[in-house]
C-alpha cells in the first residue's frame, strides 16, 4: 500500500524532527559548554518576552473574570469567582495562552534568525571559525526557551490574577486579602505541579521546533519566511498536543 504524499511528507518531517531532537540530546551534555551564549539567550528570550506576556496575561485575567461574572451571578455563586478564575488560570489558560504567545514571538524569531544565518552562510562561517554551530546556536536557544518559559508563565499567571482582581472589583467590592486568600485556598498541589511541569515541555517544543525549522531553512529569503511561519504553526500545534498528553498523564496518575 502506498501512503498519500501528504502523510509521507508528514512522517518524513516527524522523523527529521526526531533525529534533530536526538542530536540535541547527544550534544547538549558534552563539552564545550556555551555558557555565555546561553546566558545571553536567556536574557533575550526571557526578558524580551516579558512585556508581551505580561500585557496579554493581564488582559486575559481581566476579560475572563468579566465574562464569567454574569453566569456566576445567575447561579448565585458570585463569591466563588476568584477561586474559579484562579484554578482556570493556573491550571490551563495561563500556561497555554502564554505558551502560544511565546511560540509566536520566540518560535518565529528563532526560525527567522537561524534561517537567515543558514542562507547567508553564517552557520558555515561559524563552523570554519572553530565553533560547533549546533551547540552554539541550537543547544543554547533550546535550553534558554525551556528554562525561561516556566518563569514567564509564573509571572504571567500572577499578572493575570491581578487582572482578575481588577475585573472582580469593577462590578463589586472584594478586598485584596479576601481575593488572594480565595485564590490560594482553591489551589491544591495537584493543580500547580502538573501545570508547572508541562510548561518546561512547552518551552522545549517551541525552542526545538524554531531551531529545527531555521537550521534546515533553504531556498533563500523565501525559505526564511517559510521557516519562521511554519515554526510558529508547528510549535503552536505542539503546545496543544503536549497539553492534551499532560491532561491524560495527570489523569492516569490520579492528580486531577
Amino acid at each position: 500500500m502506498v501512503l498519500p504524499a501528504e502523510i509521507r511528507s508528514f512522517l518524513s518531517e516527524a522523523g527529521e524532527l526526531s533525529r534533530f531532537t536526538g542530536r540535541f540530546f547527544s550534544q547538549a551534555f558534552r563539552p564545550r559548554y556555551e555558557l555565555y551564549e546561553f546566558t545571553r539567550q536567556c536574557y533575550l528570550i526571557g526578558y524580551s518576552s516579558l512585556p508581551l506576556i505580561g500585557l496579554t496575561s493581564f488582559i486575559m485575567g481581566l476579560v475572563l473574570t468579566m465574562q464569567l461574572r454574569p453566569s456566576m451571578v445567575d447561579y448565585g455563586v458570585e463569591s466563588e469567582l476568584p477561586s474559579i478564575v484562579g484554578i482556570a488560570i493556573v491550571r490551563e489558560i495561563g500556561p497555554v495562552i502564554s505558551a502560544l504567545i511565546f511560540a509566536g514571538k520566540i518560535g518565529s524569531s528563532i526560525g527567522a534568525e537561524l534561517g537567515s544565518m543558514k542562507v547567508t552562510e553564517q552557520i558555515d562561517a561559524m563552523e570554519v571559525s572553530g565553533t560547533n554551530p549546533f551547540k552554539y546556536l541550537v543547544v543554547t536557544r533550546v535550553f534558554a526557551a525551556t528554562l525561561m518559559l516556566p518563569v514567564l508563565i509564573i509571572l504571567g499567571d500572577t499578572i493575570s490574577l491581578y487582572g482578575s482582581f481588577l475585573g472582580v472589583n469593577i462590578r463589586g467590592t472584594t478586598s485584596s486579602h479576601l481575593f488572594w486568600t480565595q485564590v490560594i485556598d482553591s489551589l491544591a498541589f495537584s493543580d500547580v505541579l502538573p501545570a508547572f511541569i508541562k510548561t518546561y515541555f512547552f518551552g522545549f517544543a517551541v525552542g526545538i521546533i524554531g531551531c529545527y525549522k531555521g537550521y534546515n531553512s533553504s531556498k533563500g529569503t523565501e525559505g526564511v519566511g517559510r521557516s519562521a511561519n511554519s515554526a510558529v504553526v508547528v510549535a503552536s500545534v505542539m503546545v496543544f498536543v503536549i497539553d492534551l498528553l499532560a491532561v491524560q498523564i495527570t489523569d492516569l496518575l490520579g492528580l486531577n
Partner: peptide, 16 residues
C-alpha cells in the same frame, strides 16, 4: 587545521 585556513564566503557571511 581550520585556524590555518581562511575562507572568504561568497555571501561574506558576516554575523549580522
Amino acid at each position: 587545521l581550520r585556524a590555518k585556513v581562511g575562507f572568504l564566503f561568497q555571501s561574506n557571511a558576516l554575523y549580522d
